[in-house]
């Protein structure tokens, strides 16, 4: 329809507004969907909080055991902030992920997603942003407040840390979405995706910086992980931005690296989806 004269600004503009409304409506549905699971949300926030205590004490013990009192270049307060903000972000980016899309592919329900005038990835992404926004309110805030209440936390000192952290978190959500989609899309080719799923959990947990800050690793290894894999961009980067671990220029560089990975992986998602649709076998009739 509009593709022929898409270059003409009025037509493009006319298309953008409804497209945005559609996207926003799907995002809203993602938010509402998760708000129906109140009890599971409470349970999840509780579990994140318990792990917050565990990880804080372990990292504080690590710092206490070093000569300088610093662990991986973080002081005690930075470690506390790192852990508690990390426990909150974990749910916002949905690091653990789910096999929901893979299940839809396996059962054939994915056919319904193809029968809508919106690209499936756009639909999934919009819904995931709604989920993420719900998690910001319900899963990020409780652990962060608990950390504030029970420990001495590091509060950012530079004004631009706040917007940079928000940007970095948004990129982390996109990045994590793209990775989860790719892992789920394996189901187009394999019926059992438990293997890739566990590989993903390990990759995201270790290389994302959940189990320990990546700075604890030998420098060359750490740099390699950061540049060669998207994982650090999902947790470690926003957290390092928040605790102002590096010089401002370096922090901006890390966020730029996130942008590169987001573009790369989202492109990958569309290619995979296109190829999958061509070879699609809808199961169950």
């Amino acid at each position: 329809m509009g593709s022929v004269n898409a270059t003409a600004p009025p037509s493009a503009l006319r298309n953008i507004v409804p497209a945005f409304r559609t996207f926003a409506a799907i995002t809203g549905s993602g938010f509402r969907r998760y708000s129906t699971y109140r009890q599971a949300t409470v349970a999840g926030a509780f579990t994140n909080t318990v792990f917050g205590f565990l990880r804080t004490y372990v990292l504080l013990a690590v710092a206490a055991g070093t000569a300088s009192g610093l662990a991986g270049g973080y002081d005690r307060e930075q470690l506390v902030t790192f852990v508690w903000a990390g426990q909150g972000l974990l749910a916002v980016v949905a690091l653990w992920g789910s096999t929901e899309i893979a299940d839809r592919i396996r059962t054939g329900d994915v056919a319904s997603d193809l029968l809508r005038p919106v690209h499936p990835i756009t639909m999934y992404l919009a819904a995931d942003l709604g989920r993420a926004w719900h998690a910001v309110l319900t899963r990020f805030v409780p652990p962060v407040l608990t950390g504030l209440l029970f420990f001495d936390v590091y509060l950012p000192r530079q004004w631009f840390t706040a917007p940079l952290f928000v940007l970095s978190t948004a990129l982390a959500v996109l990045l994590c979405f793209a990775c989860r989609f790719l892992v789920n899309a394996v189901a187009y080719w394999l019926t059992d995706i438990r293997g890739p799923m566990i590989a993903w959990l390990i990759g995201s947990g270790v290389l994302g910086g959940l189990f320990f800050p990546l700075r604890f690793l030998p420098e060359p290894l750490m740099v390699a992980m950061w540049v060669a894999t998207p994982f650090p961009g999902m947790l470690q980067t926003p957290l390092d931005v928040l605790v102002e671990r590096d010089a401002p220029a370096m922090r901006c560089g890390l966020v730029a690296l996130q942008v590169v990975w987001v573009v790369l992986l989202l492109t990958c998602c569309t290619v995979v989806q296109r190829r999958a649709e061509r070879r699609l076998v809808i199961h169950g009739g």
């Binding site: 129906t36 319904s112 169950g284």
Partner: peptide, 27 residues
């Protein structure tokens, strides 16, 4: 399209919300 054995609706949302969402999706 209606598939008797699978749903096109949003499982966790009320029917009303699904209808409203479809209005936006199909513009």
């Amino acid at each position: 399209v209606v598939f008797g054995q699978r749903s096109q609706l949003w499982w966790d949302l009320p029917l009303r919300d699904s209808f409203d969402l479809l209005r936006h999706i199909f513009r």
